[in-house]
Design a protein around this nucleic acid. Structure first.
Length: 433
RNA sequence: UCCGGGUUGGGGUAGUGGUUAUCCUUCAGCCUUGUGGAGGCUGAGACGCGGGUUCGAUUCUCGCACCCGGACCCA
């Protein structure tokens, strides 16, 4: 026996059926918005991460030197890859660029609830529009995807903010404030006591009075109060932008899921404007389910022309947790439309029926193991067959087959030429007259 | 990297410093080449790995691995 690699998961057919249904919902929703599916490599040059984040990040990458001496890594996220793709064909791609993809990513980090070393995300991005409608469309897709999964506003909320609001307010203080440190403190404030939070703010350069004042202002979430307090063009523009995004989201049907939450900072890296995180309303999934936002500078930093961008990337592990706790996770079972049961030398006729049912697009199994009647029925039960078609020697001797409804156990004999005959999806009920 | 709790057939469990490790379930076959979700019979299948203590370790002990939760981190 070989062990599974820590942090990597197997998905058996039942679990995979539920995942597949979930992925299909996310992707079908994206297709409805005109997002186009892209495919991307599992390996990229490690420099795509080390150049920006420093060599320390190698500790969290699955990186190695390939046979050609290239320093490569299994991709820990999609964004640099799509940025590379956009830059490579910048001139020929019509704007706005709207792409999605579902794929695994890999990070060498500590495994815990909702976090594996191999994890799956559906990335949805728009490049080439700085308009609030683009931000709002991302929010609308996310809201539609979650509601199409069966979730409601009782289950999730989007906490939305704008990067320039925190930064803009902080820069109005005269003190030598380390804005990155202060934003980091805000991002953590949920998990800290008030005193610890204030200590971090003071550590970032605020005075004790300023820390209290800043905390009150941010926690209040009153955009006009923030605007008045800062009274700078930068904060003015950020507040305007956030309000415009929310107005567009209202028209797009996503506003009801959004809560203004200035504590949402979403890390520090490439976000530049609106940022948001999806949270479990019941608070049972403590970490954020997923997040997204605007990253207008990234494409330029990859050597392209300045190109605004906004996107979101739900991770499937935390999404599954949310769905399970909300009671909307699909059944982890395989389903089967028909099992064609053979007894004796009935393969020819059984195969004919099987093929005709499959041509109609159904899921159909028949015996490939030479098993007994009882064993076949037992198997049909185990694969959740809806209907069993018994092609037995005795039935065929009378030019009949037996149709059995596995739910009720009812069965009856029907002429073999009528099965499947003209029926698109014949079941016991069609003959039970 | 750190903290806490775990690890006995595929799943769930009982138990013990000593001869054949308990029960339920599962799986396979048979009773049954004509009936699954009911029964009977037969079979398969486990003490996570390594070291130490001991005449003897699944049991005690140490280390490691893995699992679950959490901290840090979260591109």
């Amino acid at each position: 026996m070989y062990d599974r690699i820590k942090g990597f998961r197997d998905f058996y057919p039942g679990e995979m059926a539920a995942r597949r249904a979930t992925i299909d919902t996310l992707e079908d929703t994206a297709r409805g918005y005109g997002f186009r599916e892209i495919g991307t490599p599992a390996l990229e040059r490690a420099e795509m991460w080390t150049d920006k984040s420093g060599d320390d990040i190698v500790e969290e990458l699955y990186s190695f030197e390939d046979q050609g001496g290239r320093h490569v890594t299994l991709t820990p996220e999609l964004t640099p890859t799509v940025a590379r793709m956009v830059v490579a064909k910048q001139q020929e791609l019509s704007k706005p660029i709207k792409w999605f993809s579902t794929r695994p990513f890999w990070r060498y980090e500590q495994v815990q609830q909702g976090r594996q070393r191999e994890f799956y995300q559906t990335n949805v991005d728009i490049f080439g529009s700085s308009e609030p409608e683009a931000d709002a469309e991302i929010l609308a897709w996310a809201a539609d995807a979650l509601t199409n999964l069966g979730l409601t506003d009782e289950h999730f909320e989007f906490r939305i903010s704008h990067r320039d609001i925190l930064g803009g307010v902080l820069e109005t203080y005269d003190a030598d404030v380390d804005i990155d440190d202060a934003i980091r403190a805000v991002d953590k404030s949920d998990k800290l006591s008030t005193a610890e939070y204030h200590d971090l703010l003071i550590g970032a350069g605020l005075t004790s009075e300023q820390a209290v004042e800043f905390d009150d202002l941010v926690a209040g979430g009153d955009l006009e109060a923030v605007r008045a307090f800062a009274d700078t063009d930068r904060v003015d523009a950020a507040v305007d932008n956030l309000q415009h995004v929310l107005e567009a989201a209202d028209d797009f049907g996503a506003r009801e899921y959004c809560t203004i939450s200035l504590e949402t900072a979403r890390g520090l890296d490439y976000y530049t404007g609106v940022v948001f995180e999806c949270f479990d309303s019941a608070g049972e999934v403590s970490r954020s389910i997923f997040g997204g936002g605007r990253y207008d500078d990234l494409i330029e930093s990859f050597g392209g022309q300045p190109t605004p961008a906004v996107g979101v990337a739900p991770g499937h592990a935390t999404l599954a947790l949310l769905c399970q706790r909300a009671g909307v996770w699909p059944d982890e079972e395989v389903t089967t439309d028909y099992y064609v049961l053979q007894i004796g030398d009935t393969r020819t006729e059984a195969a004919r029926i099987t093929r005709e049912l499959r041509e109609r697009g159904h899921v159909v199994e028949t015996d490939v193991a030479g098993r007994s009647f009882g064993s076949q029925l037992n198997y049909a039960d185990s694969i959740n067959a809806e209907t069993v078609v018994i092609a037995g020697e005795q039935d065929l001797a009378n030019d009949e087959v037996t149709i059995k409804d596995m739910n009720s156990g009812d069965q009856m004999q029907v002429p073999v030429e009528e099965f499947p005959g003209e029926y698109e999806r014949p079941t016991f009920a069609d003959f039970d007259s």
